[in-house]
């Protein structure tokens, strides 16, 4: 098991280097530079700016310099926000987005998992259709739609909850978490239902049933472990997706998170910021994919047995 984790962590290094390298050159090739604006910039000014940010050096030299800084953990100065380092911007946005993402996944797993498991117990009956249909609405309701609807209902019409902010006014974290979580809730409901159905038809469950174990015990002890494997496999990428994809929710709710920086950096052609957030997110993606693989292995008795043997 430890060996498996060790190998995967070692594999992470070339993955991240590859991501940085590709991104580095990708952003330079993309049309439009960080200093282009509505009003034309004088050539002398542009040259001075490029010199300040080392952009006047040959590309490969810039790349080498960047990789050197990266190895020391320095992500460089932001182009868009002079006087701010990328490290500082990420440090400011990450805790907010991580907290938001955690709440969102919690919402998703509780609502989605529950709906999926309930539905799988009596497939093709009302107990199946009603929770699944409710969960499915979440997919039709992208955040840019659900967020404003929730805000209008609970923020404006009912005046129960604040319409923006994060940790400023009590209750301002509720609607963003629900909005961001609902899309994932629908996926999790579907995946857990399918996974549970798959497992509940397996021989060992039939055996358990034949032994006369109570149904809830079968579901919780045997069913969940196998049936939630697809869900667990989904959670890793989902968390990374939540971090990178919280942009819409952060914008709608005026939340000072990483998602906004990530997307705005691309719009602004803030080279160092794009790279910094990408490096950071790719590290997280690798870690969370690993975590979800480990969890899936742990939950799957057969795979676990194999790890034991190694």
């Amino acid at each position: 098991m430890w060996r498996f984790i060790g190998i995967r962590l070692l594999q992470a290094i070339p993955v991240i280097i590859a991501v940085v390298t590709v991104t580095f050159f990708l952003v330079r090739v993309a049309p439009g530079g960080p200093f282009d604006g509505e009003k034309a910039v004088m050539p002398e000014v542009k040259a001075a700016l490029e010199a300040q940010y080392r952009l006047d050096q040959p590309m490969l030299q810039q790349y080498a310099a960047y990789m050197g800084d990266l190895a020391r953990g320095d992500l460089g100065p932001s182009f868009k926000y002079p006087g701010r380092s990328v490290n500082e911007l990420i440090a400011a946005g990450l805790p907010v987005t991580a907290e938001l993402g955690l709440y969102a996944l919690l919402v998703a797993v509780i609502i989605g998992g529950l709906a999926g498991v309930i539905a799988s117990l009596k497939p093709n009956t009302a107990q199946d259709y009603i929770p699944m249909s409710a969960a499915m609405i979440g997919i039709c309701m992208p955040s840019f739609l659900l967020g404003p609807i929730l805000l209008l209902v609970f923020g404006i019409y009912l005046e129960w909850l604040p319409v923006s902010g994060w940790g400023d006014i009590p209750g301002d974290k509720i609607l963003p978490a629900i909005t961001l979580g609902s899309t994932y809730a629908a996926y999790i409901a579907r995946l857990s239902r399918a996974g549970m159905l798959e497992v509940l038809n397996q021989d060992y469950i039939r055996t358990a049933r034949a032994k006369g174990l109570p149904e809830w015990q079968i579901v919780v002890k045997h069913g969940l472990r196998g049936g939630m494997i697809p869900v667990v496999a989904f959670l890793g990428p989902a968390f990374a997706g939540v971090l990178a994809g919280s942009f819409v929710v952060e914008t709608i709710f005026q939340i000072p998170g990483l998602g906004r920086f990530y997307v705005q950096a691309a719009f602004n052609r803030d080279y160092t910021m794009i790279l910094g957030t990408t490096v950071f997110l790719s590290t997280l993606i690798v870690l969370f994919n690993l975590l979800s693989d480990i969890l899936a292995a742990w939950m799957n008795p057969r795979l676990r047995a194999q790890f034991g043997k190694r």
């Binding site: 993955v15 590709v22 990708l26 952003v27 990530y262 691309a266 990408t278 790719s282 993606i285 994919n289």
Partner: peptide, 22 residues
């Protein structure tokens, strides 16, 4: 398997927007 799945990881991590613009 390891090589193929790490490829997937790389593609996951690339900034999608820049990719589309290009």
């Amino acid at each position: 398997d390891a090589a193929m799945m790490r490829m997937v990881d790389i593609l996951y991590a690339l900034p999608f927007m820049i990719f589309i613009v290009l």
